[in-house]
């Protein structure tokens, strides 16, 4: 066997290889279901019946899609520039912290409350990720490790706040902050948990970042830095500035996801594990599937939203640990990066 390079692979090949990789991933996860003692077909049927074939299931998928969409569009930009932000989880939490801080302690006219919370959240996420970019640029510290470590720090920060200075007056058992006022809560689609303004914001951001990446000078520079750092140096495009820009954008969108979760669903700052069920990690697959196109996140975010909602169904219906979502994420990521060789090469039997 040998590999034969394909000079001009067709876009159709990319779609085909990706679908094959996803198929392989679902088959492998089926093996994990089997090892757990559950028929793979039964598991997949339960997931589908509880999500797509159920009216309430649809809402769950949509609700899960919102944070994945917001984080995913930022990450697709970051990965394209080869800035590996693995800390969206922590940036989401920081966004939630700052938004909650504004809601709880900043007296504002009601009309300004929500925009101020959103702004604070984006700022919080951006700074948390910007710190990693700064360390990478100044001290060449690997951003994968820093962003990941900052996740743990953000978790401790949230717990400290709701257990200490921000502890709610009516807390028994689970800890949380006081409840936000009515005007500090995002409107939802009638009878659901779908906070539509955040969903709309995600769609707009996906299209905007797509335009930025492919129709602007800044976007061109980011792409050159990501695809050919040597050429970027030759063209005088500073790599460090590109990293900082994408770090602020990707951190900012993750912060906005945190704002959406607390202003749209929980209406208070709550424990980190309840606030985010691993959105920051699942969004990595969302972004990787989109292969560096922010607009494609509009398709890939619902897919992972479906898997998160399906994980919920398995947990409720069959008492299966939510860890199954990590298995899905990891196996899909393996299959995707493993298949990338076949985008540009053809396997020939000699």
């Amino acid at each position: 066997m040998r590999l034969e390079p394909l000079p001009n692979p067709s876009p159709l090949r990319s779609v085909g290889v990706t679908l094959l990789a996803l198929g392989l991933a679902f088959a492998l996860v089926g093996g994990v279901f089997w090892a757990y003692g559950l028929g793979p077909l039964e598991a997949y049927r339960t997931m589908l019946e509880g999500t797509l074939l159920d009216p309430r299931g649809w809402q769950e998928v949509l609700r899960r899609t919102i944070p994945l969409l917001l984080i995913g569009v930022g990450l697709s930009l970051a990965f394209r520039t080869q800035f590996y932000n693995i800390g969206a989880e922590g940036q989401l939490l920081l966004g939630a912290v700052l938004a909650a801080g504004v809601a709880l302690f900043l007296p504002l006219p009601p009309a300004l409350s929500l925009p101020a919370m959103a702004l604070a959240a984006a700022l919080g996420g951006a700074l948390w990720c910007g710190l990693a970019a700064w360390l990478k640029n100044r001290l060449s510290v690997n951003e994968i490790l820093t962003t990941l470590m900052l996740n743990y720090v953000a978790q401790s920060l949230v717990i400290y706040l709701i257990n200490g200075p921000w502890r709610g007056k009516d807390v028994r058992g689970y800890i949380y902050s006081d409840r936000f006022a009515e005007h500090q809560q995002l409107p939802v689609l009638l009878g659901t948990n779908v906070h539509w303004p955040t969903l709309a914001l995600g769609v707009v951001l996906a299209l905007l970042l797509q335009l930025l990446l492919f129709r602007s000078t800044l976007g061109f520079r980011l792409r050159v830095v990501g695809e050919n750092p040597g050429a970027a140096r030759y063209l005088g495009i500073p790599q460090s500035r590109a990293f900082l820009v994408v770090a602020l954008i990707t951190g900012g969108t993750a912060g906005l996801a945190g704002f959406g979760e607390i202003a749209g669903i929980h209406h208070r700052l709550i424990e980190p594990t309840q606030l985010s069920s691993g959105y920051g990690f699942t969004a990595i697959i969302v972004a990787w599937l989109a292969r560096g196109h922010p607009a494609l996140v509009l398709l890939t975010a619902p897919l992972m939203g479906l898997i998160l909602a399906g994980g919920d169904v398995l947990k409720v219906a069959l008492n299966m640990p939510f860890r199954i979502v990590d298995v899905f994420s990891g196996v899909m990521l393996f299959a995707l990066i493993g298949s990338e060789l076949f985008l540009h090469y053809r396997l020939r039997l000699r």
Binding site: A35, R323, V325, V327, V331, F334, I337, L341
Partner: peptide
């Protein structure tokens, strides 16, 4: 090793995927 050495995929991302799979499978089983 298979994904990064034979299939020549990004080592950082593959390791990340391995962390997810390892934690996930261990948590399940």
């Amino acid at each position: 090793g298979f994904v990064t050495i034979t299939l020549q995929a990004n080592q950082f991302v593959s390791g990340l995927a391995l962390s997810m799979v390892g934690l996930g499978v261990a948590g399940l089983l």
